[in-house]
Amino acid sequence: MLAAFPHAMPVEGLIGGLMIGIAAALMLLGLGRIAGVSGLAARATGIADSGAPRNIAIAFIVGLPLGAFLVSLATGGVVTRFPPSVIPMILGGLLVGFGTRLGSGCTSGHGVCGMSRLSRRSLTATAIFMASGFATVALMRFGGLL
């Protein structure tokens, strides 16, 4: 079946996914906390008053580009294809920031940590943000924006 999608990276995806899950497991079993990036990012910059201790949040958030940088060094570069315009970054970023705070989480907190816990809230949130993502990209495709 995967032969139909020659551009897919199932092996890298699975290995990278396992790394993400191990990192989240380390946060849970080591520090007793959810590895939710949106919440930790809000905590690191002081936008959120409650949550993880601020130094913990800052350490995790600083680790994200650090780990990506190390992979980039080790593999000779990581491909990132951004849209040519900055407008999708700004509009998307505003919606992601506001939406993840209102909805109490993102792909990591609800998607990885919450779904694996079988949290009804997280299962619901993940189903909704996936559906919204599919619908948004479909609108962009049929509107000629892709």
Binding site: M19, I22, A23, M27, A52, F60, G63, L66, A68
Partner: peptide, 15 residues
């Protein structure tokens, strides 16, 4: 937390 964040970021980049 720094190690967890780094593994997480590495996983994102690798995947």
């Amino acid at each position: 937390a720094l190690v967890a964040g780094s593994i997480f970021g590495a996983g994102l980049a690798f995947s």
